[in-house]
Every structure is written in C-alpha cells, then in structure tokens.
Design a binder for these strands. Sequence first.
DNA 1: TTCAGTTTTTAGGCAAGGCTAAAAATAAAA
DNA 2: TTTTATTTTTAGCCTTGCCTAAAAACTGAA
Lengths: 218, 218
Amino acid sequence: MFSLAEENYLKTIYHLEQDSVGGVSTNAIAERMETKPSSVTDMVQKLAEKELLLYKKYKGTALTPSGRKIAASVIRKHRLWEVFLVDKLDFHWDEVHEIAEQLEHIHSEKLITRLDNFLGNPDFDPHGDPIPDKNGNFKATEKKLLSELRKKQRGVCVGVRETGSEFLQYLDKRNITIGTKILVLGKEFFDGSMIIQVGQDQYFISNKIAENLYVQTT
Amino acid sequence: MFSLAEENYLKTIYHLEQDSVGGVSTNAIAERMETKPSSVTDMVQKLAEKELLLYKKYKGTALTPSGRKIAASVIRKHRLWEVFLVDKLDFHWDEVHEIAEQLEHIHSEKLITRLDNFLGNPDFDPHGDPIPDKNGNFKATEKKLLSELRKKQRGVCVGVRETGSEFLQYLDKRNITIGTKILVLGKEFFDGSMIIQVGQDQYFISNKIAENLYVQTT
DNA sequence: TTCAGTTTTTAGGCAAGGCTAAAAATAAAA
DNA sequence: TTTTATTTTTAGCCTTGCCTAAAAACTGAA
C-alpha cells in the first residue's frame, strides 16, 4: 500500500512523462506539485528504492512498469470519481477536480470495480480524458488540437487540455462541451487565432484557446 | 480544517461518550483506537488547546460543543457513504465499514449535501444507526436491546450495536436484518439466553447476541 | 576550455503523530 | 492509613514529508 504523498508523486510523474519525451526533471516535478526541488529529490530517491521509478542523480527520473501501473490506477480512480460527481451528483465539470483529488486515494479494489459498473464502464471522464482499465491500459484515441485544423475543416470536441475553471467556464459561455461540433470558418496565420462556428453562433477565439481544445475529425 | 488523526480522535471520543456516562478515559480511547495511552495524552492535549474538548489531567476528557459538531459531521459522512455503498453499489452490510472509514474524511460540504439528496435523505445507515443532519442533530429514536424484552414480547430489528462482520454474518444466516420481526418465545433467566421466532424459524440465541441487537417494540 | 548561470543534491531542521520507558497521580486493598 | 496496583503523564526518540541554506554537478556561451 502506498501513501498519499507517494501516489501523488507517481501520478504527477506519469503526467509529466506524457507531456514530453525523455526523463522527467526534478524541477518540473517540484513546479507541478507546488513543492521544493529538495523535497522532490528526497521522495524520488525513496521511490527509486522501492523500484517504482528509475533515478540517476542529476539525470531525472522515469517510471518503471510497476510505478506506471500504480500511477494509472490513481488516474483511473480520479477519472471514475469525476464521472460519478458529474453524472450522478450533477456537479459541473469545472468543480470536480479538487474533490476527485481526494477520492482518488481511497483504497479498495472492489469499490472501484463496482463504481465502474455503476457508472456504465465509461471510457472518458467529463473533460474527455480517457479512463484506463484495471491494468492501466488506455484506449487509443485519435484526437488533435483545434489549433491544428485548417479553414473549413470540421471537428467534434472530445476533450480539453487545460482543466482550470476559468477555461471551462469560457467554453460553457460559448456552449462548447464534449461532443460539440465545431467548424473553422477562418484562421489567421500571424497569431493562429480563429473564427469558428458552434451551432448557429460564430466566435473569435485566440490561439491559446485553440491549443487547449482537443477535437476529432471525421 | 482538521487532520485525519484529529477527526478520528473526535469521532472515537464521541462514540465513547455515548456508551457511558461521565468523562472519557485515556485508556478507553487508546484501546478503541488501537494506539498507546501516551499517544492519546499527546493528542488530547492538542485538541484541548484547540478547544474541541475539555481536559483535566488524570481526569479524562469530554467534547465541547464545537468538538461534538465535528465528530457528528464525520459520523454523518461515514453513514451516508455506507448507505451509498449498500444501496447504490450493492455492497453487503458487513463489508462497508473499512471503506467508509476512508470516505468519511473527504472534505467537501457540497459533496455531502448532494450525496445526501442522491440517496434520498436517509435517516438511518445500513446497520440501523441514525444519520445526523448537517447541524449534528440526531433524530430521537426509541430502541431497546433485544435482551431487554421478556417472553412473548415482539420487536422489530432496528439496528445492531456490534458491527463486526462475524456478527453480521451470524444474523444473515438467520435471516435477521433491519426490519425483521422477532418474537421472544422463551428466556432463560440464569444466563439471559433466548429462544426467538423469526419468520417460520426458531433459534436459540445467547445473551451476547441479544445484547447486540436493537429492537423497537410497538 | 573555462567560467558564469542553472539545476540538483546534501545537510540539518521542523511539525505531526506515533512509540517505549520511567515517573507521577490516583484508586484499591490490607 | 499505609501499601500496592492501576492509570495517566512526561521525556525522549523515531519516521514521514516538508523546508532553507549551502554545496556540488551540469550546461552553454565566450
């Protein structure tokens, strides 16, 4: 059984590995976890002892298969609980993160199996992120950033990269949510900003927005 | 916000106050929490500093109103989650305690309010224990121990005092659960053992069993 | 290749929450 | 009322997970 702190480190390192190639730096972990690099070094050394990650002084770390498995199980729990909060308790998708941060550390295999069934074995959480299965495997999906689309291309919103509530509320105001169809009416090459059509409405969006919205093209 | 350890102490002291009159002794807390008396003294002094309980050296402790309120809110969460596990996830009443021990420490007012509504604002948990409201008030109920009944008296099972899984499984084997009607066919004065009728079946039960089952007489 | 800047690690400390061993207070028995 | 047994507290130590300050290692520009 692993402590709350250990689980959080593994989860964070997992996410950082996704975001970029190569090992994960001490500073990157510290920044993401809002802690100090020296604390990270401490913990990373302990986790390396337990063979949950590989660590070479000054060279960063990478999860081992067993470390990755634990990280995936924490992420699985986090996302299943988010589905529960939104689907069953009618929470809004911008309010669930902090609560799921707590719920993800509840230890009970059976609980999660039953929760998964109760929710209808969902494949994605309310932000469109994939929910790994018991073994930590993610269903492969082909999604791209809205910013990658060209003029006149269409896409369906399948997820968000940024999950802060300001961003989610920005999307809400424009009626953009998972499943929303988006048509690129125009794109400015200089700054990457776009004009998009959502339902009957047209919006101007900056490149920063377009870079945080995942779409699937058909 | 209070730590997991603090919440557990307050909860335990609350329960011990119910079980007997007068202050709660250091040893009693230690035994219930499976910790050492010296650790209890430490924590009790800290909680007294925070005015969550009254403490006089060598004289035991008693919760203050604010300590009692926190304890009740932890108990409320514990019992609501137990209802969730049994009603929604089909857990058996003897499996839910350990999981609820973890879930009771999730901090979110809104979560509990919504969970309560989702469950239909239950008044009792799966073991028949009353669920306090937001303000920590319990609905008054009149229940007595089965052992207090005399020959030929009838009662409806409304709760259990002991919630260990051996005991609950003992009851299951005899089809006794919350709501079951019980008739006392005979009672031995020497040892308090009884013969009871449950549906079409008759059982011999020892005083120890009768002292752990709450019934309501009509 | 050298040196300045950055990143990372080490060393030493702190708070929480637990423990053991020993001392002090209380309660019970003679 | 002593003496003995029990309960409770104190003192000192340990682990976890964090911190600051200082040292060490890396990196890139001159």
